[in-house]
């Protein structure tokens, strides 16, 4: 007989019963539907212990890594502690260590936490100025480098409260609060030969920059193609760093793209609709893993097009940015 702890209560799972059965029997409302491990409505998260492999069948690797499992398919073999998967983690204070200009309207914000901060490159956190003002930003840094350093690319949004504050008022030494991390747009080792397609617009580059470095640090062997789109040439940034990365790694390919060009572009930059450019460059993404970040409409459309072109649904990770 094993026990589960949920919301400070302890329940015994009787033989043949699932975690879902047990919680429902005791009157807890857990979303569920097919109860066959297919629809994934009853997804929950472990906070202690482990679950049999069957309980994580069909979930994305990144979900498995974070302890997600399906309550209906889970007959635990040890005592576990679980919760519903709403992110409810505490905020951590972090000090501004550097503010650098990346382009005319994007700055790099570097924060230092007092303790090592655990995350996967490519995930996002919410940064809080105070109780009343917080915004989500993707992490552009790599946790392996220096665990207490967090990097962000902050785009100045016209009349944006938070980004305006960061661009004009925030100074090195100031403190803000970090909540998270969240999101499943990150590199998972285990398939080093798989080709990777990464597409980002604007500061959608931030998580992809972390993911690429993560993959290269894991000595990823498959081809890695990054398409970064800007409205015009001023929207491209980190071009020197990415060009250098391309020189250093034979399997990494950098494709800067712009929607509009006011003057003649350097040969390395392609002009046009980034969706079309990607689909022309990678016409058969079957078997590839795809990461999409940035403009919401573009990400959602590209996700559909990449799927229709042959990429498996389980291999597409996307992070549509929503601007407040």
């Amino acid at each position: 007989m094993t026990q589960i702890k949920f919301k400070d209560e302890i329940f015994t799972v009787s033989a043949g019963s699932s975690v879902l059965d047990t919680l429902l029997e005791h009157g807890h409302e857990i979303p569920n539907n097919c109860r066959a491990g297919a629809c994934q409505s009853c997804i929950m998260q472990l906070t202690k212990g482990s679950v049999p492999e069957r309980a994580q069948k069909g979930l994305k690797d990144s979900h498995k890594a974070k302890g997600f499992f399906l309550a209906c398919s889970c007959q635990p073999e040890e005592d576990i502690e679980i919760r519903l998967p709403d992110e409810n983690q505490l905020r951590t204070p972090a000090r501004v260590s550097q503010i650098n200009e990346l382009s005319a309207d994007v700055i790099e914000l570097k924060l230092k936490t007092t303790e090592p901060y655990e995350y996967h490159a490519g995930q996002y956190v919410t940064l809080w100025r105070d109780e009343g003002l917080g915004r989500s930003y993707s992490l552009a840094s790599l946790p392996q480098n220096k665990q207490e350093t967090l990097n962000f690319h902050i785009k100045l949004i016209p009349d944006g409260k938070f980004s305006g504050w960061v661009h004009t008022d925030l100074q090195p030494g100031d403190t803000l609060l970090v909540q998270g991390p969240a999101g499943d747009c990150f590199y998972t080792p285990g398939n080093p030969q798989q080709n990777l397609l990464l597409v980002g617009t604007g500061t959608g580059l931030a998580p992809l920059y972390g993911i690429i470095q993560d993959a290269l640090q894991h000595e990823h062997q498959g081809e890695i193609h990054l398409f970064h789109g800007g409205f015009n040439i001023n929207g491209l940034y980190l071009t020197d760093e990415l060009t250098q990365l391309e020189k250093d790694h034979e399997n990494f390919h950098y494709h800067p793209c712009v929607f509009k060009a006011e003057s003649t572009l350097p040969e390395s930059i392609t002009q046009g609709d980034i969706t079309k450019i990607v689909l022309q460059s990678v016409p058969q993404p079957a078997g590839w893993k795809t990461f999409l970040c940035g403009n919401e409409e573009l990400v959602n459309n590209l996700r559909k097009q990449i799927f229709l072109a042959g990429c498996s649904m389980n291999d597409i990770y996307s992070d549509p940015f929503i601007y407040a």
């Binding site: 539907n33 097919c34 109860r35 066959a36 297919a38 629809c39 994934q40 409505s41 069909g58 959602n300 996700r303 559909k304 799927f307 649904m313």
Partner: peptide, 29 residues
């Protein structure tokens, strides 16, 4: 619907059912 993951999950449920697999779908569902 843009939530493709939710759609794919629903389709998995549907395919499991029509393949004669384990499911608890009722007429009301």
């Amino acid at each position: 619907d843009v939530d493709m993951e939710a759609q794919a999950a629903k389709q998995k449920g549907f395919l499991t059912m029509v393949f004669g697999g384990p499911n608890n779908y009722t007429g009301k569902d």
